[in-house]
């Protein structure tokens, strides 16, 4: 967590906006031509990896870059998931003919995702404004509490199924949309932390008092980081809902928040590429452990996760990459 802020031009000559656009087109080419070729089971793992990348990178903005340890990310994810699923199921129930035109269907879907993200933003603002006055452990437990409160509220709202959950969500998520939002998330977070705005986030992490003395509005910076994180969590929730086609409040309990935290901590708090690697690794690990889980009837994954977390804190507390990016480890990189 400590150490000087690195102001290196990490991506070197690739550091232009073109690379993002090229990646975006590339993703859609894969989506259109290749997804039918891939084994659906593996494709599913890839898609969930994508969703987890969005969650981990957006949480990293709050926990890693701004240094505010939030434990309620699943709450924001559920807000986005319910909001967008509510919209698409409404259209499916009342205007099903709209979906026959793929263009309109997809626009409804993306619109619902963005709207879900915005509702989640609003929730993030409501949660963040009071709780970000708190520090460290208190902030952690209050965000955990807010996550649980959001879950209990959904448990009691009958319009979204209450404890029965929400079935029959149209399967609109696909490789293209999930990975477009992955690229968007990484792009926004990466560009943001290089901007003056993002520098103020980093300064809050490094030393709140010093940052305040230099004129940084620390509460403002925290709330902004929190709201942006909540937006992407909401979008990830929407993508998740339309991938699984069923959501219920239990899906978004604090164990899910912990799962995202483990990804961020494992990858390194303050490392975008670390979060990506950790999200992919842990999603794959979960599937790799599935045969073993069927024998023992227990979620072994969580035992391994938690053990990993303890060992990591004891031996390499900054996570795999610390605050560095994967490019920093490449040979030929000037320090």
């Amino acid at each position: 967590m400590s150490g000087p802020i690195q102001i290196s031009n990490r991506l070197g000559k690739f550091h232009s906006n073109w690379i993002w656009l090229v990646t975006g087109i590339f993703i859609w080419l894969i989506s259109i031509f290749l997804t039918d070729q891939i084994n659906p089971y593996y494709l599913n793992i890839i898609l969930y990896s994508g969703i987890n990348i969005i969650l981990a990178v957006s949480l990293n903005l709050v926990n890693g870059f701004t240094g505010q340890f939030s434990m309620g990310h699943a709450g924001f994810m559920s807000v986005g998931a319910y909001a967008s699923a509510f919209i698409t199921t409404y259209f499916q129930a009342h205007h099903v003919d709209l979906f026959s035109n793929p263009l309109i269907g997809q626009s409804i879907f993306v619109g619902s995702l963005i709207l879900g993200g915005l509702v989640s933003c609003a929730a993030g603002y409501l949660v963040g404004l009071p709780s970000l006055r708190l520090k460290g452990d208190y902030l952690a437990i209050v965000t955990l509490g807010f996550g649980e409160i959001i879950r209990v509220i959904f448990l009691n709202v009958d319009a979204v199924g209450g404890s029965r959950g929400m079935p029959g969500i149209p399967p609109l998520s696909n490789f293209g949309w999930i990975f477009s939002f992955v690229v968007l998330t990484v792009f926004v977070v990466e560009r943001l932390i290089k901007s003056p705005q993002g520098r103020s986030f980093l300064s809050v992490r490094e030393d709140e008092i010093a940052a305040e003395a230099m004129g940084v509005n620390i509460t403002g910076a925290k709330v902004r980081a929190f709201v942006i994180g909540a937006f992407f969590a909401g979008v990830a929730g929407g993508l998740f809902a339309h991938q699984l086609q069923f959501i219920n409040p239990v899906t978004f309990d604090f164990n899910r928040s912990f799962e995202i935290i483990i990804m961020v901590v494992l990858g390194g708090m303050g490392s975008i590429s670390g979060s990506i690697v950790a999200a992919v690794f842990l999603t794959t690990l979960r599937e790799a452990l599935r045969p073993l889980q069927e024998i023992t009837q227990v979620d072994l994954r969580m035992i391994i996760y938690s053990f990993l977390l303890i060992v990591l804190m004891l031996t390499r507390p900054n996570g795999l990459f610390g605050t560095k990016e994967i490019f920093d480890f490449l040979p030929g990189k000037k320090k």
Binding site: F69, G136, F258, I303, M313
Partner: peptide, 22 residues
């Protein structure tokens, strides 16, 4: 740093819960 301690505490908690299940 205290946040590392907190993460460890979360880890110990999860470890006890899920080894309990096992």
């Amino acid at each position: 740093p205290r946040i590392n301690l907190l993460i460890t505490a979360v880890g110990v908690s999860l470890l006890l819960e899920f080894s309990g299940q096992l």
